[in-house]
Computed example of a mutant assay.
Amino acid sequence: MSAPNPAAVPAATPGIIRPMVGRDTAFFWEGTAVGELRIQRCHDCDALRFPPGPSCPRCHSFDQGHVVAAGTGTVFSYVVHRHPPVPGKELPIVIALIDLDEGVRMVGEVADAVPDGGGAEEIEIGMRLQVDFRRIDDDLTLPTWRKA
């Protein structure tokens, strides 16, 4: 039996890693599909929470809703991811921990902060960011961040 001809075997195209969508996170992904950044809010004590979960960490209520965030925030911290490869992404990518103006933190990719390769980055702690939405397909729209 001979080995397959590499030219005859199509190369696998890596796809985007898809998020797990469940009962506690569906509202968030439904929001990104319509261009909204949604944050879970407790109906009983008004506490905001991200990432979302089944009950309020403050009052333990299961009565959860959401608010639409302004989509602005400040870089609390960041990392330049250079290795290992990430399916569907071209490296390097900048991942930031963002303090949203509403008072919760969210992790996200900063799309327009391209590292120059020499150590100097186009991002810094305290920089203002604005959310943007990248439509992947009919079922997935990802929030990304850009310099405000």
Rank of each mutant, 00 (worst) to 15 (best):
S2D: 14
S2H: 14
S2I: 14
P6K: 09
P6D: 03
A8Y: 03
A12V: 15
T13R: 12
P14E: 13
P14M: 13
G15Y: 14
I16T: 15
I16A: 07
R18V: 06
M20N: 14
V21F: 09
G22H: 05
G22K: 05
F28Y: 14
F28A: 05
W29S: 03
E30P: 10
G31F: 10
T32E: 02
T32G: 01
A33R: 15
A33W: 07
A33V: 13
E36D: 11
L37D: 03
R38A: 09
R38N: 05
I39E: 04
I39V: 15
I39N: 08
Q40F: 08
R41K: 13
C42E: 04
C42Q: 05
H43A: 15
C45P: 08
L48G: 11
L48P: 12
R49F: 04
F50Q: 10
P51R: 11
P52E: 10
P52A: 14
P52L: 11
G53H: 08
P54Y: 08
P54T: 10
C56W: 02
P57L: 02
R58N: 11
R58W: 11
H60Y: 12
S61W: 01
F62E: 08
D63I: 00
Q64G: 01
G65C: 06
H66L: 03
V67L: 13
V67F: 12
V68Q: 10
G71C: 12
G71W: 07
T72F: 07
G73E: 06
G73L: 10
F76W: 13
S77K: 06
Y78A: 00
V79Y: 01
V80A: 00
H81W: 12
H83A: 12
P85V: 10
V86A: 04
P87F: 11
G88R: 03
E90D: 14
L91W: 00
L91I: 00
P92H: 07
P92Y: 08
P92R: 05
I93R: 01
I93S: 03
V94I: 02
L97I: 12
L100C: 04
D101Y: 09
E102D: 04
E102V: 05
G103S: 11
G103P: 12
G103N: 07
V107R: 08
G108M: 10
E109C: 11
V110S: 01
V110D: 00
A113S: 08
A113P: 01
A113I: 01
A113L: 01
A113Y: 00
V114E: 04
V114W: 01
D116S: 07
G119K: 02
A120I: 13
E122L: 09
I125K: 09
G126C: 11
G126D: 11
R128M: 10
R128I: 08
R135G: 06
I136G: 04
I136H: 12
D137F: 05
L140F: 03
L140C: 05
L142W: 02
L142G: 02
L142C: 11
P143H: 13
W145T: 11
W145P: 10
R146W: 08
